[in-house]
């Protein structure tokens, strides 16, 4: 009698599901330089819709730079040069003459530090619709309520919409910022370390929210917190020195990564 050793590698259900999803963003051979600093090197990533894609990596690995190129916030930094392409819904957003103001109405962004405007809660949420020309008070009211509900903060602030947003706690401010971003009815939400300035409980609330939002939006989140990436994302990309080392199902990355560097990073052996 001989022993037959046969591998039993099952394809997880998720993977099949994911393969059938459409792409939101496709980066093809994306390179980016700050002056002479080569910050992103030949990035190829295919980001699917209605998924949470986490980007992890040590400081200075290019993860924040990458997420900022996705809505061209890198425009605000002078002396940035790019090559390659980022296809968003079939159009190369790095093309000359592409109107990034238009892109940004479809791609919302939540920043590292809660940054509400020094205005009332209501005005904060109504800001986006207003700059896009909505003046009707009734419509604005509806947008404000819908966005605040979407960000799971309506019950906490419904009686104080006219108070300054700064009177809220840090965690609430961040959810106001998420609501503000929902008010422009985006397709994608980019989050750049959205919980790094928050306490653990607020962090968990934001994470819960991300799970909710994923049903309607595609979410790309940069995070320093590996457990967070593990908890909330479907796919994880590991960046190191401006390169994508590994991009795969989060389940795979955190249980059995293919690359030694990924394993060393997620198990806290460097970075």
């Amino acid at each position: 009698m001989t022993t037959t050793v046969k591998p039993k590698i099952q394809v997880p259900e998720k993977k099949k599901e994911s393969a059938s999803r459409g792409s939101v963003y496709q980066s093809n051979q994306l390179n980016l330089w700050y002056d002479t600093n080569h910050a992103l090197k030949n990035i190829d990533l295919d980001i699917k819709e209605n998924e949470v894609t986490a980007i992890i990596g040590p400081s200075g690995c290019g993860k924040s730079t990458y997420i900022k190129t996705l809505n061209r916030m890198t425009e605000t930094i002078p002396s940035v040069k790019t090559s390659g392409e980022i296809i968003y819904r079939g159009k190369n957003i790095l093309e000359k003459g592409y109107k990034f103001e238009e892109l940004r109405t479809k791609v919302g962004m939540v920043f590292q530090k809660p940054n509400p405007f020094p205005k009332s809660i209501y005005e904060n949420i109504a800001y986006g619709p207003r700059i896009h020309g909505i003046k009707n008070k009734k419509i604005l009211d509806q947008i404000v309520e819908k966005s605040l509900r979407g960000a799971a903060i309506w019950d906490e602030v419904k009686d104080r919409l006219n108070e300054n947003a700064y009177s809220l706690s840090g965690g609430q401010q961040q959810r106001i910022c998420i609501a503000r971003c929902l008010a422009i009815e985006p397709d994608v939400i980019l989050m750049d370390e959205p919980t790094s300035a928050l306490d653990p409980i607020s962090t968990l609330k934001v994470e819960e929210l991300v799970q909710e939002l994923k049903k309607e939006y595609s979410i790309i989140i940069v995070t320093h917190n590996m457990q967070q990436a593990a908890r909330i994302s479907d796919k994880t990309a590991f960046f190191l020195n401006g390169e994508v080392i590994e991009f795969d199902e989060t389940d795979k990355i955190f249980s059995n990564p293919s690359d030694k560097r990924t394993e060393d990073y997620i198990s806290g052996r460097f970075g």
Binding site: M73, E102, I131
Partner: peptide
Amino acid sequence: PKELRDASYAMGATKWQTILR
């Protein structure tokens, strides 16, 4: 703060809208 400008730009506001508002 730069963060306030960024927040405004990130919602598709133009430079002038950001300055004015």
